[in-house]
Design a protein around this nucleic acid. Sequence first.
DNA 1: CATGAATGAGTTTTCATTCAT
DNA 2: GATGAATGAAAACTCATTCAT
Lengths: 197, 197, 197, 197
Amino acid sequence: MSRKSVQLERRRQIMEALHECLLEKPFDQTSIKDIAAAAKINQGLLHYYFENKEDLLLNYIEYVIQRYKALFEDWLLSKSQSLQDPQDFLRIAFDFVCHKITLNRDLSKIFIEIWGIAIYNRKVKEKLRKAYTEWIQTINTTLVKVIQDKNKSTRISIGLVAFLEGISMFSIILDKKALDPEALLKDFQEQFLQSLG
Amino acid sequence: MSRKSVQLERRRQIMEALHECLLEKPFDQTSIKDIAAAAKINQGLLHYYFENKEDLLLNYIEYVIQRYKALFEDWLLSKSQSLQDPQDFLRIAFDFVCHKITLNRDLSKIFIEIWGIAIYNRKVKEKLRKAYTEWIQTINTTLVKVIQDKNKSTRISIGLVAFLEGISMFSIILDKKALDPEALLKDFQEQFLQSLG
Amino acid sequence: MSRKSVQLERRRQIMEALHECLLEKPFDQTSIKDIAAAAKINQGLLHYYFENKEDLLLNYIEYVIQRYKALFEDWLLSKSQSLQDPQDFLRIAFDFVCHKITLNRDLSKIFIEIWGIAIYNRKVKEKLRKAYTEWIQTINTTLVKVIQDKNKSTRISIGLVAFLEGISMFSIILDKKALDPEALLKDFQEQFLQSLG
Amino acid sequence: MSRKSVQLERRRQIMEALHECLLEKPFDQTSIKDIAAAAKINQGLLHYYFENKEDLLLNYIEYVIQRYKALFEDWLLSKSQSLQDPQDFLRIAFDFVCHKITLNRDLSKIFIEIWGIAIYNRKVKEKLRKAYTEWIQTINTTLVKVIQDKNKSTRISIGLVAFLEGISMFSIILDKKALDPEALLKDFQEQFLQSLG
DNA sequence: CATGAATGAGTTTTCATTCAT
DNA sequence: GATGAATGAAAACTCATTCAT
């Protein structure tokens, strides 16, 4: 491996360590020591690869977002039959989001955590803002083909993502049994796609 | 003032101080010192009124929830004309939630923060769980009269609250301009009530 | 009850509370609050009856010492047959000390604690010094009748008390089974009295 | 110096600092700050080398006990002529204990302090228990050769150490003049060894 | 006498970050 | 690059004592 890629690999390793830590404790209660221990590297070394705790967090957030964007691309390719048809695209995209994102408990935990940080951290907020905007636009690009009314389709796109994020949060906060998010989302998906078509 | 009410007043004063602090910093970064300063009381005294930081937080959460429940009761009373009709009740309740809760930026910030804490704090999670369950049930009690299908109405109630919480979160994270949550909610309300009727 | 005796009774009550506390925690780790709670009185009131924590401790020590001196007097009176004979007196005194003091686990704990405080607290040390000196002299007054050599009898008196205090300490620190202090003291008593006679 | 030995040296340095502090104040009144100041190191660093105050204390106790065990070994070697003869061994051991331990005022202070801590601290008690048991057994191993009766020799060994610890305590609590522990111990030693022979 | 609220200094411990090797 | 020792500030919490009522 080249110098550069060893560096990158190390950074990845540290970000994965942060990921593990965030599944156990909130970011503020996760110490550099914890992260270094999870990454099996020296505590001081962490500051060689990342300027400080915030820098690591920002890189981590970016890393997670890029990973899921890539996963989404792969998902689309694997279902490549019918991306032309808006209805089909929406169904496939919806499937992805539900199963890989909204119902992914680990990811939900981490994003709820990140929302909290974003409130008072401009850089984190900006990263989130971009990611959500992009996600909403991806949906909207297709939705507008079906709905025509641009304002309306934008509102629906936003509302759809807001709803999914709300369910994601509820899947962590509420009783799993009382909530049954899988059924709820499936039901919703049918209604939604039907209403479009 | 009686001894008892001095106690209660002081506790309220401290909880209000925490409220102010939470509008500036996340809970984990808010020190007991900060809260005491905001409450203009001695730092040690805070531990006289609350066992520890967590105890204060739990009391604060309860306090906020009770406050908004009381506000909702008042709101209903002030619009007392027509609570019999489900449609009217839903419209009035929706108005309250939108304007007093979902579009209340301070409250949104604080609840996003609390969601994050709830992930790893059982007691906080339990408080949230109860509050959301109660909220959902309040809606469902009325909704079931219109929809009949009990499972369906439950799912819609959950979905509705999830959507509102998602919008609440977006109103903090996304650009206010791009989002325009007031318009979005108004639009949604119309569609929603229409679809019921 | 007169004013004065109500006062005294309250003071006694507080000292008994300290006694209870000292059976659970070292003095330094016992807070005024703990003591007040054990005495079932208000925390502030404690400072009305005793100047401060040290004052309470000094009074408590005096109180315990006087109690055991009184108990000893009673004991002697109850065995009044034969205090004239030095051997008999020594036997009776030895019995008292063994059973009421050296083998009294609660008292042992408390005195070990007090020794520790005495090291760096002049007033406490002085109280202990007086009590031990008096005890040693009580023994010596009788012992010198049997032994004649005044220096020798003083040394034996000191050594005897030192030995008993050492056993008292061991009864707390060492395994009760391995130590068997009752048997050890009984054995010692026999040897000792025999050696005198 | 190697990494490892720097660690050990630092730990020793901190334990010596605790030693100095314990000659001025009881452990409970000695703050981490005091100890760090005495060791001339940063307060935070102390927690790098020892988990917490109790951990430091336990290590310190072990350190002192090991030091005196080593000193005793050296002492025996330096008097190597005659360890075969029980009488000679006892005399030499007795000399060591009297001069290096029982009459060592600093050590006496520290052990009285440790006794007090041991009452309510299981780990400290266990360390003391082991040390005293070992000391008693060392004496008993030789004593049993002279006395034959195993039970009797065990009782004498325990009693002997109890007596020495009692004298150690008295040397701190009582007037030095009235006590004259050197003379007392010398006298006792003669009587004791004579009684065996 | 009695209450409990108030004070403020002090305690242990944690931690992000820096630095010498 | 890598190590782990060092720093210093800050955190939560405790507590003896005082004071107004």
